[in-house]
């Protein structure tokens, strides 16, 4: 299973999240060049995040995120508190999944 590094900080009612998934993000063109077949392309297609079972991020993605994609997002923190667990998940084109979690600081 893949991994994802996550940091989350609650400030002024907003949770700031920084996340990095470890993934090659092989595009169709790269796969064709390196392996001779477009079918070897593989990249993260969906990323989601939840706290206490509530979805706070839901994102469909293509091969054009950078290698080891890194991104930041924010969500309203009124219902959440420091110490709550933020869980993130990704799934790639081949069906492999990755997970990451952190406590909101």
């Amino acid at each position: 299973m893949g991994t994802m590094r996550v940091k989350a900080k609650l400030k002024n009612g907003v949770v700031n999240v920084k996340a990095m998934a470890k993934h090659a993000m092989m595009t169709y063109n790269m796969a064709e060049k390196k392996t001779g077949s477009r079918d070897n392309a593989n990249f993260i297609t969906h990323i989601s995040a939840s706290v206490n079972g509530k979805t706070v991020l839901d994102m469909s993605t293509s091969q054009f995120l950078s290698k080891n994609p890194i991104f930041k997002f924010q969500f309203k923190g009124d219902e959440f508190k420091k110490g709550d667990k933020l869980e993130m998940k990704w799934v790639d084109l081949k069906g492999k999944t990755g997970k990451g979690k952190t406590k909101i600081k």
Partner: peptide, 23 residues
């Protein structure tokens, strides 16, 4: 070769401020 990079499905908690690295 293709145009789409990502689509975020906004939820009630979203603040809609994002940073991401793309190719």
């Amino acid at each position: 070769p293709e145009a789409a990079v990502l689509v975020v499905d906004v939820n009630p908690y979203s603040v809609n401020n994002y940073s991401v690295k793309i190719k």
